[in-house]
Structures are given as structure tokens and as C-alpha cells.
């Protein structure tokens, strides 16, 4: 299941509603991405823009790919857009499987792939002004680990 939304999400409630009653699940892995503030850059806030329609399509495709590669009992991606403050949640990725290995691997795959495939762009607001975050080659390398040769 995937969702793109402006509002925050409740991690406990999301995991509960995803896994409730599914007794084949033996392990649940969650990743929560948050806005990193402060530091040398002094980030005051971050605004996430996205491409409505394509975002949902790409997230659905990425989730389907994870389900082809690993045996998952349940999965969820929730990604926010709009203006967020340091410490606020950006993304939630939950994977659940009978045995933990599939849930761990699929979760890392989903995070790596959504960072390089889902059409989101981050605008950082700093004391020096606004700037668009540039794509990181480390993210590309992380995503390439999962490309089947």
C-alpha cells in the first residue's frame, strides 16, 4: 500500500492497521525518514515538492518490485510533501514478513529505490536563503546495489 500526503502520520497506528490479524507475520521492519536540521547549514525548514500522479505510480511500481523480490506479508510506504520543520517525519516504509531477513532486505531496497525514482524534490530554507537539494551520488550507488545484472 502506498500513500502520498501533506499531513503527518502516526507510526504506531500505521503499523497496527497494516499488520492487524495477519498471523503469518513473524517480523516487522520500519524506516522513518526525518528532516535533519541545524548543523553547519542551519536548515530552518524543508519543502517537498512532488509530481502528483507520477509519484503514486512510481511508488506503486517500487513496492510491486519489492514484493516480486522478497516474500512479504505486508508493506507500506507513506511519503509526505509540503513544508516540514527539522525533526518532522518525511517518509515511513514498513515491511513485514514471516522471517526477518525478507523484511530487512525489502525495507532497505524500498528506501534506496524511492530516493532515486520517486519524483520528489527538496527545497531547503537556510539563513542564507533557499536552495534546491542536489541528488547525491551516494544515493545512486545505494540504489545500484539492487540492480540485477
Amino acid at each position: 500500500m502506498i500513500r502520498v500526503q501533506r499531513e503527518d502520520f502516526d507510526i504506531g497506528r500505521e503499523i497496527e492497521s497494516l499488520t492487524r490479524g495477519k498471523t503469518s507475520i513473524g517480523g516487522v521492519v520500519s524506516f522513518i525518514g526525518t528532516v535533519r536540521g541545524g548543523g553547519a547549514d542551519g536548515i530552518r525548514s524543508m519543502t517537498l515538492e512532488h509530481y502528483p500522479g507520477m509519484t503514486e505510480q512510481e511508488l506503486t511500481a517500487i513496492e510491486a518490485e519489492a514484493n516480486r523480490r522478497w516474500k512479504l506479508e505486508a508493506s507500506l510506504i507513506v511519503h509526505r510533501f509540503g513544508k516540514l520543520l527539522p525533526g518532522e517525519r518525511i517518509v515511513l516504509v514498513v515491511t513485514a514478513s514471516s522471517h526477518r531477513a525478507d523484511a530487512f532486505a525489502a525495507n532497505e531496497f524500498l528506501v534506496d529505490w524511492l530516493k532515486t525514482k520517486a519524483p520528489f524534490w527538496k527545497l531547503e530554507e537556510t539563513p542564507q536563503g533557499e536552495r534546491w537539494v542536489e541528488a547525491q551520488s551516494t544515493d545512486d550507488q545505494a540504489a545500484k546495489r539492487w540492480v540485477k545484472s
Binding site: 512532488h50 509530481y51 511519503h79 518525511i90 530516493k115 520517486a118 520528489f120 534546491w132 537539494v133
Partner: peptide, 10 residues
């Protein structure tokens, strides 16, 4: 047709 920079979500 959409034109954009490399994506930076997550």
C-alpha cells in the same frame, strides 16, 4: 511531458 532535475525524496 515533464522535465525535472534528478529526484531528491526520501
Amino acid at each position: 511531458v515533464a522535465i525535472f532535475p534528478p529526484v531528491t525524496g526520501g
